[in-house]
């Protein structure tokens, strides 16, 4: 830092020796390691979480790709082969069901639907919940009171009868399932986010932003939400499996996806009814369901550990 340079701090012109050097250094970019990169590094060292990520990736990819290339469709019956145990003959590697439909392709479709319900419903949850919670928590006062009382009222609605009534009234439709599950599970996340926001709001860097003249909306967007993402992400990975299980439960009650389309829950339900005669009908989709749920839970736990600053 030259003495000459020091006095011209406010009127700095690029091109001076020291300054130019500064610029090239910055351009060369000693990139910092963000908290996210740190967390990713820790997550990668967590074997259970990493293995879960792989398994989930493979299942997801298979669920997306395989139904396209498989010789059978999910609703395509083979009248010669009903309730056939897994066999290499005709590529019925998971066997067939009561109508002679290929169980493998149905399981892949089931994974597709279950994952989609899990992810989409959780996204709905996330958008509503995070916005609601962050606004209530940051602005506070009477608005906070009003918004959280709304949440309390919605909480008091018995959920399962509500969904059943919806299904009966509007028919069984995938969009409705997303909406129904999303509409209820955002309540939890709104509460969590509000709590976190309340504690974030008292942090000094928020005060520093206000002292710098940053407006409320910008503070929420730039400071509150990014700092909430960690906990939200953990919550999301733990919500997805619970949504999947809930959908399975609805299917079990016969309120799931409209046949012939199916989900893992629907397949388990079908299998359960013939458990004593054709156990593979239950075991195969149940294993997939369990593996998917386990994987999400492991990833969620891994993320929680990875994002926990106490570990540092």
């Amino acid at each position: 830092m030259s003495v000459e340079g020091r006095h011209e701090w406010y009127n700095w012109v690029p091109g001076r020796g020291a300054a130019r050097k500064a610029e090239t250094l910055a351009a060369a970019g000693v990139a910092g390691r963000s908290l996210w990169q740190d967390a990713w590094g820790r997550l990668r060292r967590n074997r259970a979480a990493l293995a879960s990520l792989w398994v989930l990736g493979v299942i997801t990819l298979a669920a997306i790709v395989l139904p396209w290339v498989w010789p059978y469709g999910y609703a395509q019956p083979d009248w010669n082969l009903m309730y056939h145990a897994p066999t290499w003959a005709g590529w019925h590697i998971f066997g067939t069901d009561a109508l002679g439909r290929d169980l493998f392709v149905r399981v892949m479709w089931g994974c597709r639907i279950s994952l989609m319900v899990g992810v989409v419903a959780t996204l709905v949850t996330l958008v509503i919940g995070v916005t609601w919670g962050a606004v209530a928590g940051f602005i506070g006062g009477w608005l906070d009171g009003l918004m959280m009382r709304c949440v309390d009222i919605l909480y008091s609605i018995p959920f399962i009868p509500f969904v059943i009534v919806l299904m009966v009234l509007f028919g069984r439709n995938l969009l409705l399932i997303f909406a129904a599950i999303g509409a209820v599970s955002w309540l939890d996340i709104a509460r969590i986010v509000r709590g976190q926001t309340l504690s974030l709001r008292k942090r000094e860097f928020i005060e520093a932003a206000r002292a710098s003249g940053v407006g409320t909306a910008t503070i929420i967007r730039r400071h509150i939400v990014p700092n909430l993402l960690g906990i939200v992400l953990v919550y999301v990975t733990l919500t997805i499996p619970s949504v999947i299980l809930f959908e399975a439960f609805l299917s079990f009650l016969g309120l799931g996806v409209q046949a012939p389309l199916t989900s893992l829950g629907g397949l388990v339900s079908d299998g359960a009814s013939v458990l004593q005669v054709y156990p593979y009908m239950l075991v195969i989709p149940a294993v997939f369901l369990a593996v998917i749920v386990y994987c999400f839970n492991f990833i969620g736990d891994g993320l929680r550990d990875a994002l926990d600053p106490k570990d540092r």
Partner: peptide
């Protein structure tokens, strides 16, 4: 530069 930080540190994080 004036407060004694290196310009190369511009992309680093507080921690």
């Amino acid at each position: 530069q004036h407060v004694g930080l290196l310009p190369a540190q511009i992309n680093r994080y507080p921690h």
